[in-house]
Design a protein around this nucleic acid. Structure first.
Length: 411
DNA sequence: TCTGGGGTCCTAGGACCC
DNA sequence: TCTGGGGTCCTAGGACCC
């Protein structure tokens, strides 16, 4: 494969607010904000229209404060099905140009137009895409054009809304290096502070910094950031990455800092249910369960456990979550709880590892059909049809189960 | 400016195995 | 009884992004 690519980063402008304005034209030209839990004390602004931003509204701003700052602000609750639909329409439009489309999040993605650019000029393609997204979906976007992902992403940020920006390698010194290092994708507050202590303030400083020093201070991330600052990024546009889910989790900030165990248990019930539902939609299960606890001072704790068998059912997730919680909680008031399943796999590939302990627990002295019932109750109906593999050592040592039975289980 | 909810990747220590 | 070194997995926490 040739090493010179042409990559677009397509970035939707204030996406949720723009989708709402597209659905309801009366909202156009007005300050609009999307806020989670807007009715509650802890609601925050998730996105806002450019009209709202002009009045000082920004993401993460508390809803109460936003109202004070901009009394005419139109505040809407998020409507994710609507946004997902708009997102899907946007990505299918991109797929009309090339199969090399990689969604990064609901409102941005990369496309590799190297092949297409042999027939048409990249800027012409970008203009057409931008115009079509505007005309057909009524949504504004910015497009960055560059030889790699990092530069394309950086370019799309340079002009908003409705910008098209080309960032060539030879322009890096002029356009990228003068910027403060915090502007760089991948550098947050914490890294910027560390870099400042090393007298690295601009992206140019980072590009020219000593590699060994960066490695020592920031690990492999330091080395990578330095490469990026020099415009080097070899990541390919990967259309498959969307299907490669690593974890599924839900969390919720409680209306007030909570100490009542029954309320916390109830919250875990809801979280387990939502996680189970989302796993089901994706047909996934996972062997590692984690809980997150955030206290009143914003200190986070996580507890996790890797299980013998994957879980995906609401009740199993709840039971494991509560076990972890009991181990971790000392009674301090809690602000947020979360449940995440990771180490995921497709349910259809799921194989049960009946360890000796498990085997004893489920199989002891039970007739075969009882055992099947037990297994189905525990791991869900249909699993046996999908096939159960039992650790060979285990059943060799368990004489009360015939080989035939185990063969039957495998059907 | 007192901060939601969905993620990914990285680090570091300890357990365990060869 | 005391001694390496490498690899992998697990757990907890942190940084970052949208």
């Amino acid at each position: 494969m040739g090493s010179t690519r042409i990559i677009f980063h397509v970035d939707m402008n204030s996406f949720y607010a723009s989708v709402e304005q597209a659905y309801n034209p009366e909202l156009k030209g007005k300050p609009v904000a999307i806020a989670g839990n807007a009715k509650e004390r802890r609601g925050i602004i998730v996105t806002s229209s450019y009209e709202a931003r002009a009045k000082g509204i920004y993401t993460t701003m508390n809803v109460g404060e936003a109202k004070r700052k901009c009394p005419e602000l139109i505040i809407l609750p998020p409507d994710f099905p609507k946004y997902r639909e708009a997102s899907k329409a946007m990505f299918s439009l991109l797929k009309q140009y090339t199969e090399f489309v990689e969604p990064v999040s609901i409102d941005e993605g990369y496309i590799d137009i190297t092949e297409l650019s042999k027939e048409r000029h990249p800027i012409e393609i970008a203009k057409e895409i931008q115009l079509r997204i505007l005309n057909e979906l009524d949504l504004p976007c910015s497009i960055g054009i560059a030889p790699n992902k990092f530069l394309a992403k950086t370019a799309s940020d340079m002009k908003k809304p409705m910008g098209i920006t080309v960032l060539r390698k030879r322009e890096i010194a002029d356009k990228l290096w003068p910027l403060p290092v915090i502007e760089m994708h991948g550098v947050g507050e914490s890294t910027a502070k560390k870099l400042a202590s090393l007298k690295i303030h601009t992206i140019g400083d980072l590009a020219k910094a000593n590699e060994g020093l960066l490695k020592e201070e920031l690990g492999k991330n330091g080395v990578r950031l330095r490469l990026r600052a020099n415009g080097i990024d070899s990541r390919e546009v990967d259309p498959e990455s969307v299907f490669d889910t690593k974890s599924v989790g839900n969390s919720t900030t409680l209306p007030f800092d909570e100490t009542d165990l029954s309320k916390l248990e109830e919250t875990f019930q809801h979280l387990a249910e939502r996680v189970a539902e989302r796993l089901d939609v994706k047909k996934l299960c996972g062997t590692t369960i984690s809980i997150q606890i955030r206290d009143a001072n914003w200190h986070n704790h996580t507890k996790s456990k890797t299980l013998q068998n994957p879980v995906y059912l609401k009740n199993d997730i709840y039971e494991e979550a509560i076990k972890l919680f009991r181990r971790a909680w000392d009674g301090t008031p809690i602000r947020l709880l979360g449940v995440t399943i990771s180490n995921v796999q497709d349910v259809k590939n799921m194989a049960l590892q009946l360890s000796f302990d498990n085997f004893e627990k489920y199989a002891k002295d039970e007739p075969i059909f009882e055992l099947i019932n037990t297994i189905e109750k525990k791991f869900g109906k249909g699993l046996i049809q999908r096939g159960i593999e039992i650790d060979k050592k285990t059943y060799a040592s368990k004489t009360s189960f015939s080989k035939d039975f185990l063969e039957d289980l495998k059907e």
